[in-house]
Write a protein that binds this DNA or RNA. Sequence first.
DNA 1: TCATTTGTTTGATGGTTGTACAACTGTCTC
DNA 2: GAGACAGTTGTACAACCATCAAACAAATGA
Lengths: 106, 106
Amino acid sequence: MNPPATSSLLAPGQFERIAKALADPRRFAMLETISSALECPNQALCNDFPVSKATISHHIKELVQAGLIEPEREGQYKTYRVRQDVVNAYAAEVIRRVGKPRARAG
Amino acid sequence: MNPPATSSLLAPGQFERIAKALADPRRFAMLETISSALECPNQALCNDFPVSKATISHHIKELVQAGLIEPEREGQYKTYRVRQDVVNAYAAEVIRRVGKPRARAG
DNA sequence: TCATTTGTTTGATGGTTGTACAACTGTCTC
DNA sequence: GAGACAGTTGTACAACCATCAAACAAATGA
């Protein structure tokens, strides 16, 4: 029962999914673009990245499934927001797992 | 010690390399294993993971090239240590880039 | 030097993934 | 409903990658 501190935000398997989502440079750049605006319309991504809209949709899907961004419908359009708490939880989890010497459990 | 800024530790391109290195679950698990001991001999990895030594060598190489671990020769054997400063710098860089709303450059 | 142990490199292979094109769904306006 | 715009999905392909087996290299010990 005791939900531990920071990592409880990440569902099982989410850590790996995030790691994979962040691994592709283009996808990470898209995440940065989304992060650079409070609300990023999909079209902005189509303008900023020289890939087809299908590819953008694919990357967006990965980011959403990783829990890194949240889509918002605005009528015909779609915008996205970065889940900063998830990003922070991921970074914290990385540090917790490999960022400091493990306690000797002794 | 006062490790100055967090990201200056990462060389150009290292961020992407680290992201890719962390993306594979098995490789990350190896990094965890190395992190769990102050010095991890290669044999420990061979015992803990059901993959061939060639595969282990390959993953180790990736981790070294990403700057995440440092090899140490001990005569016939080899051990590894996690560069916690690099891990921390990576986590900090993730947060800096996408972990908080971008300043509006104002 | 030879044999053993440890780790690396090479070549091959099956799976994963980033990408595009085409077709589809959904929404808005008329 | 028709047409236009925005985004998704299916299919296909090329590049990448994790993996192994085998050959190779390096160090130890007899």
